[in-house]
Design a protein around this nucleic acid. Structure first.
Lengths: 128, 128
DNA sequence: TGACAATATTACCATTCAATCATACAGTCA
DNA sequence: TGACTGTATGATTGAATGGTAATATTGTCA
């Protein structure tokens, strides 16, 4: 099974992605599909932080932060390190930020097209 | 509000992304967080298809395909075009595929690291 | 040791949502 | 017109999960 999953990366043809691989990809997207988790990721971009600092930075409750950090860590997006009473989290997979930028760009293009419609200069008719 | 969202793309500093922008980004990820929808996207990579063809290509039920196509279209990822009885869908935002490749690469690196642990040649200790 | 601080976990509720069935709608052709 | 095909849409159900409050756990210090 591990091998089957590893094959995924070497797969030239996305059409041959198996159900398991698709589920893994979908799962990764799902981890990023919650604003609270994105908040945590972004707060960690400027440097590693312990839980208390993340609570302060995001305005989320301690229990919630702890929970979402677990999700992000299990997904391999964050790493944790203990330092006395503190647990310090940091970004383990910086490619996350490229993904966010990708989405931002995509959303921006979309919004600009929509704005264009209202301005009467539609370039990309939305086949309604 | 539109302007606030448009600002998103010009934002140099992700830390300043507002709550609305974060919700939009999370929403985009959420659309991609279901294997059935990824299946449809991948099926459309080789070219536009009508609903029946997508049902055949994915093995999903017609009602389900129709539902997910609606979600994808509303998200701006697909476009629709009517041709007689048929409704033909095609990719509207090809950057989706780069995102999938990104995730694939990220997952692959992660799996290889994990495999390395089992092989006794761990390069990236997982701070457990 | 006891008191305290930082983090994690448990139990729970409320919400979201994918999937399905049945049915409605739209377009074609006889 | 009616029969048929392709697609969309309620209505419903079950499962997953985010948020929270309370509590447990872990480590520090006096």
């Amino acid at each position: 099974m591990i091998q089957k999953l590893l094959d995924m990366g070497h797969q030239k043809d996305r059409a041959k992605l198996g159900g398991q691989a698709l589920e893994m990809i979908a799962g990764r997207f799902r981890v990023l599909s919650e604003a609270s988790r994105l908040k945590l990721i972004i707060a960690l971009e400027e440097g590693e932080k312990n839980v208390s600092a993340l609570v302060a930075a995001t305005g989320l409750t301690q229990a919630n932060v702890s929970r979402q950090l677990q999700t992000l860590t299990e997904a391999g997006i964050l790493n944790r390190r203990k330092d006395g009473l503190n647990v310090i989290y940091h970004i383990a997979d910086a490619s996350i930020f490229e993904m966010c930028d990708h989405v931002c760009g995509s959303l921006q293009r979309r919004l600009e097209d929509q704005a264009g419609v209202f301005a009467g200069r539609s370039k990309t008719p939305s086949g309604k």
